[in-house]
Write a protein that binds this DNA or RNA. Structure first.
Lengths: 248, 248
DNA sequence: AGTCATTTGTTCGTATGTATG
DNA sequence: CCATACATACGAACAAATGAC
């Protein structure tokens, strides 16, 4: 069972590159961080050595591995940031300690009318005006997530200006009179990265994104913010603590 | 910005198929459930109509769309099962109401020694004997998830037999003296489906899996079960409720 | 019924990419 | 490096089915 298939529209060298990248991501390698030789890989995947070389060349271009003549191919170490999901979910604070600098940048502000789904979530009339903020989450200069946030445009008219002043949604909401809010629900799925994901998050073709749809409510339990986030799955994992007292 | 790229090792028709599949998954289509004509899609992606046809043919083979001569291509309605993650996470019960029949099948039992990570999670000595159960979760005959569960082999020696009698981990644990348990933590990530994922979950090449690593503890807070699960991302989404009183 | 525009299905040929040995 | 076999992509036709008039 070599695992790769022909005539699937994906070139063998790319399938092999994807398998090796996934294996590296799962930590399936010995302590040396050394990949098997090209001849061994060619035998394992049941392809010609040329094909393995093409796969390794692609991974080297991505920066996943490094190949040196006479020495072999070694894995370039990389780590995955864990993003906690709890009642207190906030982007920058959640990454604290794992990275030197976590920032969210505002990349777009617009107004649109509520779809049925968003209206129901935010308890507004269908078609009600919504404020739409697009943000890019980065850690140490590496893009981690792209998100779209929707707010009641009437209640939060001053939010974009506040965001530009304060530099975070939490502080911008505080400036708009929301002293506190909690994450009520999060729905998580995953999908292949789209072309715009690849552009915004600097991903390779074949990469995967983690998708979340979440709702934040204020202290009175009234919904204030609906969000759709897209995380680079090879750089982020989500952590859910399900302890009864997790609200503290 | 057509979004697709040439010479990436992924055939254009497959990139287009992936884009269309993702768009359908995101609900980006009008109410008619009708796809644009081949000519329109060819113009949008800036490719020949043949190439679009190849992409649509692949999606039709997957069952995502249906094409009729003279009429066009329509989306085959499909829904995604939502799997709730909470302190009370149980496979079959969580899907109740969404599907007619949810079952977990035991597909493998073996014994192995604890890795450092598993030993720390289960509070056992490194190398301690572990019971390893592999299960396949299905809903209405469609495979949804594949999971590996680890238990202390000494404490739960009778578990495999109990599972075969009872047909569920929850009831098997009850038979082993664990009247109740709760989900303590869940870590979620995503990755391209591996070859064995595709085989076990009947996935197409290019499919994506949602990965969870979780820990269950008994009423005294002592860890009893560590699990690694792999969900078919196009058939399952995970739902996290983060309400303070969600333990009920 | 028939006509028409629209849309998918099929068949040529040609050029380039992929994979092997 | 080469030669060979097959997959991929394009272009230009024409055939066949659909739905509306």
């Amino acid at each position: 069972m070599s695992g790769i298939e022909r005539q699937t529209g994906v070139a063998l060298w790319r399938q092999i590159a994807d398998e090796i990248r996934a294996a590296i991501g799962n930590g399936d390698h010995d302590d040396t961080g050394r990949l098997p030789t090209e001849a061994v890989l060619a035998a394992r995947f049941d392809v010609n050595r040329h094909t393995v070389r093409q796969a390794l060349a692609a991974l080297a271009r991505e920066g996943v591995v490094e190949t040196v003549q006479g020495r072999g191919t070694t894995i370039v170490p990389r780590r995955r940031v864990t993003y906690p999901i709890s009642t207190r979910t906030r982007f920058s604070a959640g990454l604290g300690g794992q990275v030197a600098q976590a920032v969210t940048r505002l990349v777009g502000v617009s107004q649109e009318s509520a779809t049925p789904e968003l209206a129901a979530q935010l308890r507004l009339a269908e078609g009600a005006p919504l404020l739409r903020l697009e943000t890019l989450g980065e850690a140490d200069g590496v893009p981690l997530s792209r998100a779209v946030h929707w707010f009641d445009a009437e209640r939060f008219a001053g939010l974009p200006d506040a965001y530009r002043r304060e530099g975070s949604i939490t502080r911008a909401l505080a400036a708009c009179g929301v002293a506190d809010y909690v994450r009520q629900s999060t729905e998580i799925s995953a999908a292949p990265a789209t072309a715009s994901d690849r552009a915004d998050l600097a991903l390779q073709p074949g990469a995967v994104v983690l998708l979340t749809r979440s709702l934040n409510v204020d202290a009175q339990g009234h919904p204030i913010q609906a969000s759709h986030s897209r995380f680079a799955a090879d750089r982020v994992s989500l952590s859910v603590a399900t302890e009864p007292g997790s609200s503290s």
